[in-house]
């Protein structure tokens, strides 16, 4: 059974067809990359998976570890092991990073029947993970994403991923806005979480990220459909020739 299975997903936004019959199957231990032109529906796909209001499917289905997501709210999906790293992380004025993380982690732990972490144990765990990601203590004391630089926001997303230990992670353009060093740090953060029991879907515009996070499969999303799938070499082809040829051939 795939960890994530999307079957013929169709979705409208504001009466406009955005996803037009998208199917994708992601198995344990796999990393998939999704590439596609601006406006092709990549973020829409990620919001649909995460369960954002207004992004309900018109038809088709999505399964997480065999369980249909259609009746599940965003928070339930997250507790069940789905994670979305936002393309544009949301600022939460006044909400401290540390207490936010703790609330999130304990919600998930409670759901999967693990003991909630007390304050001390939690802080210790966060510090350990944060230092690997070069996220400074000072950043955790600030309000979530408020005044963070683009790169800091992305690093904080991956820190959340590391703390939540999801089964399926969707990373929506986590590489955009990162400088070369940060790209390496974030990629290492992601790679260190790859294992035989989880799966990762990276959405990106740039082949370069895929040098660091090497995918098993690459898919090209265009106009709400996956028009081509292949191995890492497909990303190189996009890098060299752009999308036009691929779209015309499809």
């Amino acid at each position: 059974m795939p960890l994530l299975e999307i079957k013929n997903a169709k979705l409208k936004l504001d009466n406009k067809d955005i996803l037009k019959g998208l199917s994708l199957s992601v198995n344990e231990g796999e990393v998939h990359a999704i590439m596609g032109p601006n406006g092709s529906g990549k973020s829409t796909l990620s919001y649909m998976l995460a369960g954002r209001d207004g992004y309900e499917l018109e038809s088709g289905e999505v399964f997480l570890e065999g369980q249909s997501l259609s009746e599940m709210e965003a928070d339930e999906r997250a507790r069940s092991g789905l994670f979305l790293a936002f393309q544009y992380p949301v600022e939460l004025p006044g909400v401290g990073g540390m207490s936010f993380l703790r609330e999130a982690v304990n919600s998930r732990r409670k759901f999967i029947g693990e003991e909630e972490l007390d304050h001390l144990a939690f802080v210790k765990e966060v510090r350990k993970v944060a230092s690997k990601m070069f996220v400074k203590d000072e950043m955790l004391k600030r309000a979530v994403n408020v005044g963070f630089s683009g790169g800091e926001k992305k690093r904080f997303e991956i820190l959340q991923m590391a703390m939540l230990k999801p089964t399926v992670s969707i990373l929506d353009e986590t590489d955009s806005g990162l400088d070369v060093d940060a790209l390496k740090i974030v990629s290492e953060g992601v790679n260190s979480q790859r294992n035989e029991d989880n799966a990762i879907v990276v959405i990106t515009h740039y082949q370069r990220l895929l040098d660091y996070i090497v995918p098993d499969f690459v898919h090209i999303l265009s106009d709400g459909r996956i028009i081509k799938s292949g191995g890492p070499e497909l990303a190189l082809e996009v890098e060299k020739n752009g999308y036009a040829g691929l779209i015309n051939a499809a």
Binding site: E73, A74, D75, E103, A104, L164
Partner: peptide
Amino acid sequence: FYLKSRGISE
């Protein structure tokens, strides 16, 4: 939505 996407109830 951001908070819910982290598993926190509405």
